[in-house]
C-alpha cells in the first residue's frame, strides 16, 4: 500500500479529518464491543465472534469486490489456504510456545496467500465481470479439492491446531478479542485504502477501467496490489478462525458459503462502502444465528429467499437505501 502512493500520509490525514464523525463512531463501537464479553452470555459472545469474523471478511472482500468491482466468488480459497498452511507449519515442527507457533503460522499462511494471489493476479484480473467471478470460484474449488485429496496436506484427516488461549481465559472470550483486533485492523486498512489515491483509483476502475487508464491510473498495478492485500487479510482471518475452531478439515475451511456470504454482506449493506459490509454482516449474523437458529430445516430456504428479496428490494444495499433519506433529513434541518 505504501507503494500505491507516496502521498499516503498526507491523504490519510485529510481522510481522517474529513471522516471524523465516522471514526468517532467506529471507536465508540470498538469500546462497546471490547466490553461486550462482560455483559453478554457465552452464547451471545459466540454470535458476536461470528459477527466480527463475518464483518472483517466482508471488508477484506470489499477491497477488491466493492471498491474495484471485481467480484470474487472464491475468496474462501484464501481462508482455506491460510488455515492449512498455518496448521501444517504449526503442527509440523515443535515450537517452544503456542504463541510462537501461532506467530510463525500466521506469517507462513499470510505469505502463502500473498504468493498465490500474486501468482494468479496478472492473468486472472484480465478477466472481467462474471468471468473473473467464476474463475475465482474455480481457483477455490481446485485448491479445496487438492487439499482434500493429497494426503500430505491432511485435508481429509484434519489438523488439530494448538490452543492459543491461556489457561485462565475462556477460549471463546480469547478468540473474541483476537477477532476484535483483527476486525479493527482490517477496518483501519480498509479506511486507509479508501481515502488514498489507491482507493480513488480502484473506484475509477470499477466505474470504467479503460477511461481510468487514460486518466493515468496504473490499473494493472492497483488491481494486483489490492488483490494481494485482500487475499492476505482474508488468509489472516481464516487462520484465526481455524484456531478458534481448534480442528480443521478441508471441508470446514474451503466453503462455498464463505465466499458467498462475503458478497451477500457487502451487497446487503452497500457495495463499495466500508460501513456496508459491517451492517450487512450484523444483520445476517443476528438473523441466521438468533432468529433462524431454531429453524435448521429451512435455514437454506430462508437464506435463499432473503437473497432474492434483497436484490429485488434494495439493489444498492441498506446504505444506498438510507443515504437519500438521511440526506433529505439533514437538508431539512439546515
Amino acid at each position: 500500500m505504501m507503494m500505491a502512493g507516496g502521498t499516503l500520509p498526507g491523504m490519510l490525514a485529510q481522510g481522517i479529518a474529513a471522516h471524523r464523525g465516522w471514526i468517532a463512531l467506529a471507536l465508540a463501537a470498538l469500546v462497546l464491543l471490547a466490553l461486550a464479553p462482560l455483559y453478554l452470555s457465552p452464547f451471545h459472545v459466540r454470535v458476536a465472534q461470528l459477527f466480527l469474523l463475518s464483518a472483517a471478511l466482508a471488508i477484506a472482500w470489499s477491497l477488491l469486490g466493492g471498491f474495484a468491482g471485481y467480484w470474487s466468488f472464491g475468496h474462501t480459497a484464501f481462508i482455506g489456504l491460510g488455515a492449512f498452511v498455518a496448521g501444517l507449519v504449526e503442527t509440523g515442527w515443535t515450537w517452544p510456545s503456542p504463541a510462537l507457533a501461532f506467530a510463525v503460522g500466521l506469517l507462513a499462511g499470510a505469505l502463502a496467500c500473498a504468493l498465490l494471489a500474486g501468482l494468479i493476479a496478472y492473468p486472472i484480473l484480465r478477466l472481467r465481470g462474471i468471468y473473473f467471478a467464476i474463475a475465482m470460484l474455480g481457483v477455490a474449488q481446485v485448491l479445496g479439492e487438492l487439499n482434500n485429496s493429497i494426503d500430505a496436506f491432511k485435508g481429509t484427516m484434519g489438523i488439530v491446531l494448538p490452543q492459543l488461549a491461556p489457561r485462565a481465559v475462556e477460549p471463546a472470550t480469547f478468540y473474541y478479542y483476537l477477532l476484535l483486533v483483527a476486525a479493527a485492523v482490517t477496518l483501519a486498512i480498509g479506511f486507509a485504502v479508501k481515502v488514498s489515491r489507491l482507493g480513488y483509483g480502484l473506484l475509477s476502475i470499477r466505474e470504467d477501467e479503460d477511461t481510468a487508464r487514460m486518466l493515468g491510473v496504473p490499473t494493472e498495478r492497483y488491481k494486483i496490489q489490492t488483490f494481494v492485500l485482500s487475499a492476505v487479510l482474508t488468509g489472516v482471518l481464516g487462520i484465526i478462525y481455524a484456531h478458534s475452531l481448534g480442528f480443521i478439515t478441508a471441508g470446514s475451511v474451503y466453503r462455498t458459503d464463505f465466499s458467498l456470504n462475503m458478497i451477500v454482506y457487502a451487497l446487503l449493506g452497500g457495495m463499495g462502502t466500508l460501513i456496508g459490509p459491517v451492517i450487512g454482516a450484523g444483520i445476517m449474523v443476528v438473523l441466521t444465528q438468533i432468529v433462524l437458529g431454531r429453524l435448521l430445516d429451512t435455514h437454506m430456504f430462508i437464506t435463499g429467499a432473503l437473497l432474492v428479496i434483497l436484490v429485488m428490494l434494495a439493489p444498492r444495499g441498506i446504505v444506498g437505501f438510507v443515504k437519500p433519506i438521511l440526506a433529505r433529513w439533514r437538508g431539512g434541518f439546515r
Binding site: G5, G6, T7, G10, M11, R197, Y200, G201, L203, S204, A212, L215, G216, V217
Partner: peptide
C-alpha cells in the same frame, strides 16, 4: 469526484 480523479492521477502534486 470525477474532476478530483483527474487531479489525483494527473500532474498536480499531492498538495
Amino acid at each position: 469526484d470525477n474532476v478530483r480523479m483527474g487531479a489525483l492521477f494527473g500532474r498536480a502534486g499531492p498538495r
